[in-house]
């Protein structure tokens, strides 16, 4: 079984995507053996997050056995703890934040801390991408910035998304050493042996399978996991068990 912790549907402002709809995403998942995905609408990165979340929820309700809804939120449009509670009540299991990269606020802002605290109370995962996708045209979020946030909210579960190899790998694993409430997904991590090295560095309980579909080719991250050379128990943890635990879903 595989659960993709990092999937999207929707459109991208910088180039046309060959797959855009939730049904397109589902076909890709079927083609490449992905059973379930934690999914968000790409509208939530650049546009109105309320509409984005409504789209995501509608998709997840059509395919409840395949999609777990992940919200997007920003300080615009009255984002905050109140709306996050409403989203949790509707079934959202996590929230994505894009400070600095796209939405222009700081990881140290009152909004960020309000969301992090509320997410902890609501048992929702907070996903902090360091880049929107693995394309060098985009700026990256300094990974050590996440250290402060995760330390100040030790009961909130954070997911680091987007680091690549070399200095980013080291920064991610060093930050994770200080923050036991921080996990990582590897959709953008393309270094040789990356998954195995991650598991060695932080343990298999904190590494999650993610693809970045529909922005990325899903097959590449399936191959990355399947050729990581992990023992079966570690492979299962990374492929789906950790995601099921963090999302609070019964996928076994």
């Amino acid at each position: 079984m595989r659960i993709d912790i990092n999937a999207f549907f929707g459109h991208w402002p910088y180039h046309p995507l060959p797959h855009t709809s939730g049904e397109d995403l589902l076909r890709l998942m079927d083609r490449f053996g992905i059973d379930r995905a934690a999914v968000a609408s790409l509208r939530g990165l650049h546009g109105d997050w309320r509409t984005a979340n409504a789209e995501t929820l509608a998709l997840a309700r059509v395919h409840p056995d395949r999609f777990t809804p992940i919200a997007c939120m920003s300080p615009m449009n009255d984002g905050g703890a109140g709306p996050l509670r409403e989203l949790a009540a509707e079934g959202f299991r996590g929230v994505r934040l894009y400070p600095l990269l796209i939405q222009g606020y700081s990881l140290r802002s009152p909004f960020t801390h309000e969301i992090a605290a509320a997410a902890g109370e609501l048992n929702m995962m907070v996903i902090v991408p360091t880049r929107p996708m693995m394309n060098f045209r985009f700026p990256t979020l300094p990974i050590p910035e996440i250290d402060t946030l995760a330390r100040q909210h030790p009961t909130t579960r954070f997911l680091l998304s987007g680091p690549n190899y070399l200095s980013e790998f080291r920064a991610a694993t060093e930050t994770m050493a200080d923050c036991p409430n921080l996990s990582i997904e590897f959709a953008c991590m393309q270094g040789y042996g990356a998954v195995r090295h991650l598991v060695e560095a932080v343990g298999e309980q904190r590494v999650l399978f993610g693809t970045g579909t529909v922005l990325h080719y899903p097959a590449c991250n399936v191959a990355k996991l399947d050729h990581a050379g992990l023992p079966p128990a570690q492979h299962q943890a990374v492929a789906w068990q950790n995601a099921a635990r963090l999302l609070g879903i019964d996928a076994g």
Binding site: P16, M134, F136, Y165, Y192, Y217, H227
Partner: peptide
Amino acid sequence: SQIDNGMIEYAVEQLGPQRVVFGTDTPLLD
């Protein structure tokens, strides 16, 4: 490092497959 959905299809469509050459950047990349 980029695995952008559609990048290979786009190159093949625009240039033909004769103009695209496989490489891995091993052992930096997977």
